[in-house]
Simulated scan of single mutants.
Amino acid sequence: MMVVDDHEVVRTGLRAILEPEDDIEVVAEAPSAVEAARQADAHQPNVVLMDVRMEGMNGIEACRIIKNSHPDMAVLMLTSFSEEEAVTSAIMAGASGFLLKNVGRAELLKAIRAVGAGQSLLDPAVTRSVIDRYAKLLESERDRAVDAISDREREVITLVAQGMTNRQIAEQLVISENTARNHVSRILEKLNLTRRSEAAVFAAQHGLLPEDG
């Protein structure tokens, strides 16, 4: 594995924890994100233990570069703070795990072995904040998707949800069947859906159906 931190005392401390372990070998260390990318190419560690905040390029950018070149290389991020944005960015960059620096020795070793075995993990202290952030992002994406639908497309998705075929939609809206088909295709594309049944569920979940009565 490789240890990456811009503080020598931290790298030395981590080595002191890791090197006595029979199943863990530190093959490289790096004081910067740029050097980490180089060392990853040179030594091919199966696990990279990397600080998030470093001078110059940060650990998240380095993680993205390393994962682009070595998709199977596990990157375990370390930070001093439970930062929602940093956690989310690290996950999006391909990190396998995220730990706070105050983690205990046993927990650190367990995490390294877990990501080395292909598992993903988050420190319990940051899991809740990540879940909350993703929930907000998901809600925001849904709102944007609804806003992207035109008035005509709202009419069409309502009829799709009622089980109408393209021909029936065309007759209802006094348009050609081909135009109706194109509307349905655009709706599915905008909402990132693949089936009419999914569009019907989306319409019901987002208040696009007319109220009874």
Rank of each mutant, 00 (worst) to 15 (best):
residue 3 V to R: 09
residue 5 D to R: 10
residue 6 D to I: 05
residue 7 H to Q: 14
residue 8 E to P: 01
residue 10 V to R: 00
residue 10 V to Y: 01
residue 11 R to F: 07
residue 11 R to N: 05
residue 12 T to Y: 02
residue 14 L to W: 03
residue 20 P to K: 02
residue 24 I to V: 11
residue 26 V to K: 12
residue 27 V to C: 13
residue 27 V to L: 11
residue 28 A to E: 12
residue 28 A to D: 14
residue 29 E to Q: 13
residue 34 V to M: 09
residue 34 V to A: 14
residue 35 E to N: 08
residue 35 E to S: 06
residue 42 A to G: 00
residue 42 A to L: 14
residue 42 A to F: 01
residue 43 H to R: 12
residue 47 V to E: 08
residue 51 D to G: 07
residue 52 V to L: 06
residue 55 E to H: 06
residue 56 G to H: 04
residue 58 N to Q: 03
residue 60 I to E: 02
residue 64 R to E: 14
residue 66 I to Y: 08
residue 69 S to R: 14
residue 71 P to L: 01
residue 78 L to E: 04
residue 78 L to C: 06
residue 79 T to N: 07
residue 80 S to H: 05
residue 81 F to N: 05
residue 81 F to C: 01
residue 83 E to T: 09
residue 84 E to S: 15
residue 85 E to N: 10
residue 88 T to S: 08
residue 89 S to F: 00
residue 89 S to D: 15
residue 91 I to R: 09
residue 91 I to T: 07
residue 92 M to D: 15
residue 93 A to C: 05
residue 93 A to E: 02
residue 95 A to D: 09
residue 96 S to A: 15
residue 97 G to M: 06
residue 97 G to A: 08
residue 98 F to P: 11
residue 99 L to D: 10
residue 105 R to G: 01
residue 105 R to C: 03
residue 107 E to W: 03
residue 107 E to K: 12
residue 107 E to T: 07
residue 108 L to K: 13
residue 108 L to D: 11
residue 109 L to C: 10
residue 111 A to N: 10
residue 113 R to P: 07
residue 116 G to H: 03
residue 116 G to E: 11
residue 117 A to N: 15
residue 118 G to D: 10
residue 119 Q to L: 13
residue 127 T to A: 15
residue 131 I to P: 00
residue 133 R to W: 09
residue 133 R to P: 00
residue 135 A to K: 13
residue 136 K to A: 13
residue 137 L to P: 00
residue 141 E to Y: 09
residue 143 D to I: 12
residue 144 R to I: 06
residue 147 D to F: 04
residue 148 A to F: 06
residue 148 A to R: 14
residue 150 S to R: 08
residue 155 E to T: 06
residue 160 V to F: 01
residue 170 A to Q: 09
residue 172 Q to C: 04
residue 174 V to P: 00
residue 175 I to D: 05
residue 176 S to R: 05
residue 179 T to V: 14
residue 181 R to G: 14
residue 184 V to P: 01
residue 185 S to I: 10
residue 187 I to A: 04
residue 188 L to G: 03
residue 191 L to F: 06
residue 192 N to G: 06
residue 193 L to T: 12
residue 193 L to R: 07
residue 198 E to N: 04
residue 203 A to C: 04
residue 206 H to K: 04
residue 210 P to V: 07
residue 210 P to D: 08
residue 213 G to D: 14
